[in-house]
C-alpha cells in the first residue's frame, strides 16, 4: 500500500517507540557498571543534568507549541532520554572494545558529551514526529506555507534550547549513527544534513569551539605531513 507522508511519519514514530520499548528513561544495569568503573562516579551529575535539561526542554516546547502541550513535551523528552541512554551504552561498549578500557571517567564526566548526545537523541525524536522533514521541501520547513509550529522545532532549535555549540553536536553525530544501527534511513539522512548545516555555517559562528581547535592545531605545528600531490 503506497504510503502517504503522514502514514510514513506515523510508522516511523511507532517504529521508534518499538525500538525503545526495552529501553528505559533511566540508566540500564550495564550503564551503572560503567559508572561504577569510573574514577569519579558520574551517576549523580548525569541524573541531575537529564532532570535539568528535561525541565528546560519541556518549558521551551510548551512556549513554542502551547502551554496545553506540556505533557506532550514531557513524552517527547522521555523518549529522547530513552534513546540517549540506549546509545550511550552502545557507544561505551564499542569504546571498550576499541580502546580495551573500562574506566570512562573523563568521558562520562564531560558535560559537553552528555549534552550533545542527549540533544542528538532528541533531534531524532523531534525529526521523527515532524514527519519526513526531508520530503517537506526543506530542512523541516516548508517554504512560505503556514507551517505547523512543530516544524520549527526541528534542527537547530535544540541547540538553542540547550545552549549547545553546534560543533559539539557535530562531534557526536557519526558515533551516534555508528552506535545505533537500527536508526531509520531517513533519520540518518536527517542527521547527515545537520552535519552539513553545521559545517557550512553554524560551526563558524563567533565563540564556536571550532576556532579553539583550529588555533590549537596550528600551535601544535604541521603534525601529519600533507599528502603529496597525486602523480
Amino acid at each position: 500500500v503506497p504510503q502517504t507522508p503522514i502514514r510514513a511519519a506515523m510508522n516511523s514514530i511507532q517504529q521508534l517507540r518499538v525500538d525503545l520499548t526495552s529501553a528505559s528513561d533511566q540508566p540500564s544495569s550495564n550503564l551503572l557498571v560503567y559508572y561504577k568503573n569510573c574514577t569519579v562516579d558520574p551517576s549523580e551529575e548525569i541524573r541531575k543534568r537529564v532532570e535539568e535539561l528535561g525541565q528546560v526542554f519541556v518549558e521551551r516546547f510548551a512556549q513554542a507549541v502551547g502551554q496545553h502541550c506540556e505533557g506532550l513535551g514531557r513524552k517527547r523528552f522521555n523518549l529522547g532520554a530513552q534513546l540517549y541512554y540506549k546509545v550511550m551504552e552502545s557507544m561505551l561498549k564499542s569504546e571498550e572494545k576499541r580502546l580495551s578500557v573500562q574506566n570512562f571517567s573523563k568521558l562520562l564526566n564531560n558535560a559537553a558529551f552528555h549534552t550533545s548526545l542527549l540533544a542528538c537523541a532528541l533531534e531524532v525524536v523531534m525529526a521523527t514526529y515532524v514527519g519526513n522533514s526531508l520530503k517537506s521541501g526543506g530542512f523541516g520547513r516548508s517554504s512560505g506555507s503556514s507551517d505547523s509550529v512543530e516544524t520549527d522545532l526541528c534542527f537547530p532549535w535544540i541547540l538553542d534550547v540547550f545552549q549547545l555549540p553546534a560543533f559539539d553536536f557535530y562531534k557526536v553525530i557519526e558515533s551516534f549513527i555508528k552506535a545505533e544501527p537500527t536508526l531509520k534511513h531517513d533519520m540518518m539522512k536527517h542527521l547527515e544534513q545537520c552535519e552539513h548545516v553545521i559545517m557550512e555555517s553554524l560551526a563558524w559562528k563567533t565563540d564556536s569551539p571550532l576556532f579553539d581547535l583550529l588555533k590549537q592545531s596550528r600551535e601544535e605545528g604541521p603534525g601529519e605531513q600533507a599528502e603529496p600531490p597525486a602523480t
Binding site: 558529551f113 558515533s175 544501527p181 534511513h185 540518518m188
Partner: peptide
C-alpha cells in the same frame, strides 16, 4: 546506514573527539 559517509579513522571515537582519551 551504509550510505552514510563515515569519516572517523579507526583510532578515533567519542573519547578522542571530546578530549577524554
Amino acid at each position: 546506514n551504509q550510505d552514510y559517509h563515515f569519516g572517523l579513522e579507526d583510532h578515533e571515537g567519542v573519547s578522542e573527539l571530546f578530549d577524554c582519551d
